[in-house]
Simulated assay, not measured.
Amino acid sequence: MSGHRRAKAAASFASEADLCASFLAAVEANGQWVAYPETCNWDILLARRADGFQIGIQAKLRLNLDVIAQSLEDGGAMSADGPGPDCRAVLIPWGRNSCERICKYIGLTVIEVKPERTSPREIGFRPRLPGLKAKPAASETWHEWAPVRRHDLPDYVPDVRAGASAPLRLTNWKISAIKIAVTLDHRGFVTRADFKHIGIDHRRWLSAETRWLRNDNGRFVRGAAMPDFKAQHPRVYGEISADRDKWILPT
């Protein structure tokens, strides 16, 4: 491909979020992987359904040293037993891999995404994701970092846009906060016992300064400044609400 055509392909993605969306559409069509956007400091964290094998991915419209450094392990002996994915990768537009030898040498896979597929049979990116029974050549494409333990995945797949600027993240704290909000929807109030049961610090909620909750005869009801977690994460909010009987404090 000529330099002009490579530049044209790269320019067809208006943002890193669009690049991620195109890649995720192809991955989800495959059905073998679950994609966790904006999770564990990765733009995308993939987990293979069959065995939990993980790929951590950072996305960039141009491959550069910053995104390469961002994809590597933290240095030092103290981080040797920290959590991490089985493989690490950077996601870029098709035809923009200018550091192939460097990335291969340090164990990073470069995933290139096509702006458009020319036929339904195309997967839309290269290389293919590693399968359970990888061919011998796969070891040259996907370097396994062999972490002591994999990342702990959230109980719910985040309903956020991967690669977005200043992304809204679905953290474990946010999941617990949604449970408090769902309890309010269901019961009309919460108590200190609910915070203990769910495992979230009550002080931020009950502070007179935040006004997230207000005291109503020893019970706490929704305050004027409580965040709208349902608007932030509508799909996950509904999923947590549907699971209410599994986690809510019995009354």
Rank of each mutant, 00 (worst) to 15 (best):
W212T: 01
D185M: 07
G199K: 07
A166S: 14
A177F: 04
H202V: 03
V160P: 05
F220R: 11
A166G: 00
I198A: 00
H202G: 03
G163Q: 01
T191A: 10
L170K: 12
R169C: 04
T171A: 03
R219C: 05
S176K: 15
H186I: 08
R203Y: 00
A181C: 15
W205M: 02
E209S: 12
A164W: 02
T171Q: 01
R219N: 09
H186K: 15
T183V: 06
L170A: 05
V221K: 14
K179Q: 15
T191E: 08
L168C: 09
A224R: 15
K174T: 15
L170Y: 05
R214C: 03
I200W: 02
A162Y: 00
H202P: 05
R219G: 01
F189A: 13
R161L: 13
N172P: 04
G223Y: 02
T171W: 04
T183E: 09
R161D: 08
G223W: 07
V221Y: 11
S207C: 04
L184S: 13
T171M: 06
T210M: 00
G163K: 07
T171I: 10
K174W: 05
H202A: 15
S165R: 15
T183F: 02
S165T: 14
A224Y: 07
K230H: 09
K174L: 12
D194S: 14
R222F: 03
A166V: 10
T171L: 01
V190H: 06
S176T: 09
R219T: 13
T171K: 02
I198S: 11
A193P: 11
H202E: 13
